[in-house]
Every structure is written in C-alpha cells, then in structure tokens.
C-alpha cells in the first residue's frame, strides 16, 4: 500500500475564482478513468474539499464519488458523444467537490458534482430563453390567508 502522497493538503483558495493553474491539466483529461488503477490512489479519507480534478483524483473516496455521478448522468442519458465540428461552441465542464457532513460534524459522504461552465455559453447558439419565474411574495401570503379559513 502506498502511503498518502500529499503529506499536507494542497492550498485551497478561499475565493470562488478558478485559476488556470488550478484547473485540471489537459494531460489528465485525456487519461481515461480506467487508466488510473486503484492501487495508485490514496485510501485515506480526505477531510478537505479539493478544487482541482488532479488533486481529487488521487483519492479513492473522491474517485468513487465521481464514478457515481457519471453513472447517474449516464443512466439519465444526459448526453451522447458526437464528433466535434468547428461550428460548435464547446462549453467546458468542471468538477465540484463537497463533503456532506452530519449534524455532529462527522463525514456523511463525499459528493462530486459535474457542472457546466455556463459563462462560456453563447446566446443564440447554446441557449435562447433563460427566464424562470418564481412565486411572488404577495401570492404566498394570499394563499396562506385563504388556507387558514
């Protein structure tokens, strides 16, 4: 068994901005999930939330979380693979890692979330309408008022 390789957890940024250096490296993106065998991953349960894919992929816990997410996305038929064409605007994606804790602070589960980088979308190509209505406060109060009588 290989001992935990990063002795100290990597520096985590406190700001939401994604630095280019923190993004997954291209070299990692082309390696398939199967290429990294479990033997090269750290079994220890990490207590920090990594920012970069390359940091997270070192841990079995995070890797399993990503596999679960991909499995869920596949079972929902979220996408299909198509050949790239230059007319396409290819939107990036990112992994977001969150540790879900119980009330007492102990770790409940590791959750990996695949999100699209919406700011790289172009209006007209990738989306047209984005408006989504929410309820008006007055409606909530009025319905409550009718409900009590």
């Amino acid at each position: 068994m290989i001992p935990p390789s990063p002795a100290s957890p990597p520096l985590l940024s406190r700001h939401p901005m994604v630095l280019r250096s923190r993004q997954p490296k291209i070299a990692n993106t082309v390696s398939s999930a199967a290429a990294n065998t479990a033997a090269t991953r750290v079994l220890l349960s990490p207590s920090f939330e990594p920012v970069a894919f390359s940091d997270a992929d070192k841990y079995v816990a995070w890797h399993d979380a990503m596999c679960d997410e991909i499995k869920a996305l596949r079972s929902n038929h979220t996408w299909s693979l198509v050949p790239f064409h230059p007319s396409m605007n290819v939107v990036g994606s990112r992994w977001v890692y969150r540790i879900k804790r119980r009330v007492d602070g102990s770790i409940d589960r590791y959750k990996a979330h695949l999100v699209a980088r919406g700011f790289t979308q172009q209006e007209g190509i990738d989306y047209s309408e984005t408006f989504s209505p929410v309820i008006k406060q007055a409606t909530v109060r009025l319905v409550f008022s009718i409900a009590v009588s």
């Binding site: 390696s31 992929d57 990503m66 979220t78 693979l81 290819v90 695949l114």
Partner: peptide, 27 residues
Amino acid sequence: MKQPSGFVDPTLPSHVCRLHKSLYGLK
C-alpha cells in the same frame, strides 16, 4: 460540452458531448 475530466472515452477522445438534458451551471 467537453467530455468531463477523468471520464473521457478512450476510443473517441476528440468527441464532444451533445447535451440532451440540462446540467447545473448552464444558463
């Protein structure tokens, strides 16, 4: 969409994902 990091299809690495459903983060 680009194929997600770590889960690129080894046989079709240059392909992209055509989304049928919406993902968190999309406009």
